[in-house]
Design a protein around this nucleic acid. Structure first.
Lengths: 202, 202
DNA sequence: GTCTATAAGGAGATAGAC
DNA sequence: GTCTATCTCCTTATAGAC
């Protein structure tokens, strides 16, 4: 086949791996399956990556960067805080419902990292990225609605991720969108209770 | 070795499997590792279980029954609602912190079930058991504090599990107990907002 | 019923031709 | 640099002696 620079080959393999993981799970993402998905030979995979674990670590690092940029920009300014939050949660649920296997893959990768000695720190960085993205969202929501938050931003971010994680798992298990919408309603109200109307400048 | 009735052998294997899964993860829970943990031969395992998947399904069914009985009975009557809830969450976190690998194992089993064609329904039943246990806790809290809930019990239960799941994952990832305590504080307040003081009978 | 031994296949990784 | 062929190890499952 054609000669492909290593960085490009690594990128292709990481994306192929992500597809295989989403479709069949981390356990089924063997080097052979990933190489086949990428349309290259097993040897080429090992030319680009030292080991399977190094590839999986690459996958985690990759989704980590994606996540940071995926802060919801579907804010409708002018609405009140609780509505804005509820719409945000709804948009989040819609993303998951549109591609449930992807979200499942993210959770599997977190747990895989937690179980793999050299990769536990990667799981922490994955969540640090989530928290950073959550902070961005919270700041944007505050600015769009004219509220500030009663609690420090890092604490708010952790609360938000706690809610979205819990909501995600529950939905993935039973796919009960109606029940999830009610939980999401609760989440929006609970978060809104931590908002404080900003005074206009005197 | 001694002749052991099949049901007893199955029970021993399920408990051995749970230990291996907690210690090393679902992926490392091979038939060999489980048989060794149970102190029996590989053939004996296959005499008791048709296949590895059948054994893992047995493990999930087992933890499912355990969970239902594990409703927190560490209620201190007389305290107000928010304090009771916060103490409950703290007790829950203490259980996880005392044996983090067990909680990790539960989550891995859920995801394993979601990925395995014949076992997806088992994951739903696992969560149905969680919700049932959550309902029990909520009723007990209500009775101990003299509150009733503004939302239907099934909805309250789903909210509670959503919160505990989210809290669990976040703690398992970074083991930041201080940050988790603040989230747990939020969770207690948010739930308490759904409580309604019961009027004494006229 | 329980064991040892082994079958049959899939895994990660590599040697060596081109 | 990229491939095919292969090494070695480990998996699930079973055959057959006791």
């Amino acid at each position: 086949m054609a000669r492909i620079p290593v960085p490009q080959r690594r990128a292709a393999l990481i994306e192929a791996a992500l597809r295989v993981i989403a479709r069949q799970g981390v356990a089924a993402a063997t080097t052979r399956a990933i190489a086949a998905e990428a349309g290259m030979s097993l040897a080429s995979l090992h030319y680009a990556f030292e080991s399977r674990d190094e590839l999986i670590a690459g996958v985690i690092a990759h989704v980590l960067e994606q996540q940071a940029g995926a802060a919801l920009d579907t804010l409708t300014p002018g609405a009140d805080l609780i509505t804005t939050l509820r719409d945000g949660f709804r948009a989040y649920l819609a993303v998951i419902a549109a591609d449930p296997l992807r979200e499942q893959a993210m959770m599997e990768l977190t747990q895989y990292a937690l179980r793999t000695p050299g990769l536990a720190d990667l799981a922490r960085r994955q969540y640090a990225a989530y928290y950073a993205a959550a902070e961005q969202v919270l700041v944007a929501v505050g600015e769009a609605t004219g509220y500030e938050w009663r609690r420090p931003l890092p604490e708010m971010a952790r609360i938000l991720i706690t809610l979205t994680d819990g909501i995600s798992i529950a939905w993935l298990v039973d796919r009960d969108t109606e029940a999830t919408e009610r939980v999401l309603d609760f989440a929006a109200r609970a978060l809104a209770a931590l908002g404080l109307r900003k005074e206009p400048h005197p």
